[in-house]
Every structure is written in C-alpha cells, then in structure tokens.
C-alpha cells in the first residue's frame, strides 16, 4: 500500500508550511464505495480536500497491519468504505472486514489512540451524497481530535508500533480470521459460539498480544526492568512479569543480571517464534 504511505509523507511535507490539516486516508472498495465516490463527484457533491483515497477490490483487503502501519506513519484518520452488509461483491468479504475493524479499534484503544480515528462506513454505488457527508463529517471529527500524537511523542509511537506488531501475530490473525465462522457457521464440534463471549476472549488476547509487543518494542536495544516497563506501560508489574515469562518461553526476550536485585530484559532482535 505504497500509495497510502506516500499520501501521508506528502501531507507531512505540507505540515512544515504552517497550520495543521488532518491527514486522512480512505480505502474504498471497487464495487460499492469507490463507485459511490465517483457518483459523488459526478453529482458535484463537495467535501474537504484532506482525504486521499486508495481503491481496493474489497474492503477485506485492508489488513490491520495496513491501517496500523499508516497510523504509525502519522495518519490522523483512516476511513474504510465497503459495500452494505449483504451486498458484498465477494459474498461475505465485509463480514470479515467488520471483525477486523473491531480488532483494529481495540488495538488503537489499547495503544492510546482514539479508536474513532478509524471509521468504517458502508457506502453503496448509489450513495454519492452519503459519501460526501461521511467524508465531511469524518474530517471535522478528526480535526476536533487534533493531530496524531505519534510524530511528536516517542511513547505514543512505540504504542502504535506495538499495536501494529500485535496485529500481525499468528494468534490474533487466527482468532479474528476464524471469528465470523465460529459465530455463524459453527466450530469443529458443530457448535456456534456466543458472540459476546468470543469477543471477550479476543479482547483479552488482543490486550495480551499488544502488551507483549509493547514490551518487545520498549526493550529493543535497551535493557529494562519489570518495574520500568510497568511504569512506562502503565500496566501492573505482576502482569508485565507474566508477559515476560511468555516472551522468554518463545525466545523473544532475554534476561540480564545487573548487580543488585533487579534483573533487566532485552529484546532478542533476530529469531524467535512468531
């Protein structure tokens, strides 16, 4: 998704000129939303210039990694446009999109980014006016939220990096990838799972993977103690230690023994299980 990255870096360039303008990237599915945006243009509906749109064949193409990577690069808002539920050109693509967006929002929340900086809207090919409304409203909303903290604060950036790393773990990809089918079509035992319970389970896993990723980001090239990590992450130290137990089990982090009673940990840069 180089074009999206390019849009952000271009916007960065503008920023030096002075007043801040929100940088928003829109991903539109070819069959509904992109057509809707076209219709919007044909009908001459107006909307702010902040958005840079990228056409994809289906909204499911947008993996959490693409979105989080953009936030990492400094995007202030991201809009995803897809077909209405039931209208997907690829039958059920947007069901998966919904699940993924839920994960993305959860990860953004965990990372301290207002999840409303990411918006998913269903825009059909005939909803030109809706498209202009959505973009206008979203741009205003992002403007109110102010600029992303990622570029200014290292800590904020580290958190978004961690969210991005967490989003590519096999565990979260597997859970979110299976979520829709488990809820609707049933599992290997031919039972369907309760939506709320499954969401709770995924949220806990998401939080765990995010926090573990954050530990790895923070301890990369810098040896840190559990207490240090706890205070940076604002996570209780016993929980940090439990994450470290898992990370050591997976060969992702190693212990160092400085003098005294407080061991520190450093991320192992290459290798480990993923």
């Amino acid at each position: 998704m180089a074009e999206a990255q390019h849009a952000i870096s271009e916007a960065k360039h503008d920023e030096k000129a002075g007043s801040w303008e929100p940088k928003i990237v829109g991903f539109l599915c070819n069959w509904c939303s992109y057509a809707g945006a076209d219709l919007c243009g044909v009908s001459r509906y107006q909307y702010p210039t902040n958005i840079r749109t990228v056409r994809v064949m289906c909204s499911t193409r947008i993996s959490p990694h693409i979105v989080l990577d953009l936030f990492k690069a400094g995007a202030d808002g991201i809009l995803l446009g897809g077909c209405h539920i039931g209208d997907c050109h690829y039958i059920s693509g947007n069901f998966y999109t919904e699940k993924r967006v839920r994960l993305m929002k959860k990860l953004l929340e965990d990372a301290g980014v207002d999840p409303s900086r990411l918006r998913l809207e269903w825009v059909s090919a005939s909803e030109g006016e809706k498209f202009s409304k959505v973009v206008t409203e979203f741009t205003d909303h992002v403007r109110k939220l102010g600029p992303s903290a990622v570029k200014k604060q290292e800590a904020a950036k580290a958190k978004v990096m961690a969210a991005d790393d967490a989003s590519v773990t096999f565990r979260l990809r597997a859970l979110v990838g299976k979520e829709y089918n488990l809820e609707t079509k049933g599992n290997v035992y031919k039972n369907t799972l309760d939506k709320a319970e499954l969401e709770k389970l995924i949220d806990v896993a998401t939080m765990d993977e995010f926090e573990r990723s954050l530990i790895l980001v923070l301890a990369k090239g810098k040896s840190r103690s559990v207490k240090e990590l706890g205070s940076i992450m604002e996570v209780p130290t016993d929980k940090v230690l439990r994450h470290i137990v898992v990370l050591r089990q997976k060969n992702l982090i190693s212990m160092e023994h400085p003098e005294g009673f407080t061991p520190t940990y450093r991320t192992i840069e290459i290798g480990g299980e993923q």
């Binding site: 190693s254 160092e256 192992i268 290459i270 290798g271 480990g272």
Partner: peptide, 12 residues
Amino acid sequence: MNSEAVHAGSHG
C-alpha cells in the same frame, strides 16, 4: 554485568 547468553542466529 552478567548477561544471559543469547544466540539469535548468526548475523549477516
């Protein structure tokens, strides 16, 4: 500093 032995694969 007594560092825990780590082998993360040969670099390069």
